[in-house]
């Protein structure tokens, strides 16, 4: 028996909006730790890993570890039927072939339930090694989204370069080139407006911009984004969900030949 009650139901809605265009079908795993997902895009260039810890739920009952295969685009459609302040409860029976979504309005005057059929999905879990990154950049997530959107009008790739000067985002295309430099800035009124750069060594990596742009669909989940970079390794683009969990995107770099 699985029963998960999420008072801030909009979190689940935002998570699905963030991943539905990147991944088609995926298994949601439920265990004592929480509600999680790990999946790759169809080209195996990007990987998404998300977790909503059990503490994020008002009520969390998961009698045994369960993996539920779902089509994410359909799940996003179901979640779009919930109101912005609805409480969302997920329910599944042991050995059942469906997942029920229950939406309760905050004043309990409307209750809706949607049942989705589960799918069998072959998926391989990848082990993500612990890495000491050469550079870690924390910045406002809206600023990062804006930069990626602006650069995608010019080119198809993004070079992210961290030096003592700051973090530089560059692209190049038929019409020309663009460079945007953000410097460390901690003298802000609100901590979420800060840009913090921790650098062990300078690092430059190049990525396909359309993936990074797709990751920024997670912007509504967090005011800050963290980029972790090391030479010749996938970048990690992480949005922390308050004390409740995270969504991390890993993107394989473009490699010079």
């Amino acid at each position: 028996m699985l029963e998960l009650r999420l008072v801030q139901g909009s979190l689940l809605k935002k998570l699905l909006e963030a991943i539905k265009d990147l991944v088609t079908d995926a298994n949601f795993d439920c265990s004592a730790t929480g509600f999680s997902l790990q999946a790759m895009d169809s080209s195996h260039v990007a990987l998404v890993s998300l977790l909503l810890r059990s503490e994020a739920f008002e009520h969390y009952r998961c009698d045994r570890n369960i993996s539920m295969g779902l089509n994410l685009s359909n799940m996003a459609k179901v979640l779009r039927c919930s109101g912005p302040d609805d409480i969302i409860t997920l329910k599944a029976d042991d050995g059942g072939d469906s997942l029920t979504f229950m939406f309760e309005s905050p004043n309990q005057d409307k209750i809706a339930d949607f049942e989705m059929k589960l799918m069998d999905i072959d998926s391989e879990h990848l082990g993500i090694p612990d890495t000491e990154y050469q550079a870690i950049v924390r910045m406002p997530s809206a600023e990062f989204a804006r930069i990626c959107k602006d650069l995608s009008g010019i080119g198809d790739t993004i070079a992210i370069s961290v030096t003592k000067e700051g973090v530089k985002f560059s692209t190049r295309g038929d019409i020309g080139s663009a460079n945007i430099v953000c410097r460390q800035n901690t003298s802000v009124d609100k901590p979420e407006d800060a840009t913090i750069i921790e650098m062990e060594e300078p690092v430059t990596l190049t990525f396909a911009l359309r993936y990074i742009n797709s990751f920024t669909k997670a912007t509504p989940l967090s005011n800050q984004v963290t980029l972790s970079l090391s030479s010749d390794l996938p970048v990690v683009v992480e949005y922390k969900i308050a004390e409740m969990g995270y969504i991390r995107f890993y993107l394989a770099p473009k490699i010079d030949e």
Binding site: E124, P129, P234, K254, D256
Partner: peptide, 14 residues
């Protein structure tokens, strides 16, 4: 030129 690497060449199956 540059080539797109795959995530599976960095992270291995559990």
């Amino acid at each position: 030129g540059s080539r797109q690497s795959r995530i599976t060449s960095f992270f291995t199956k559990k």
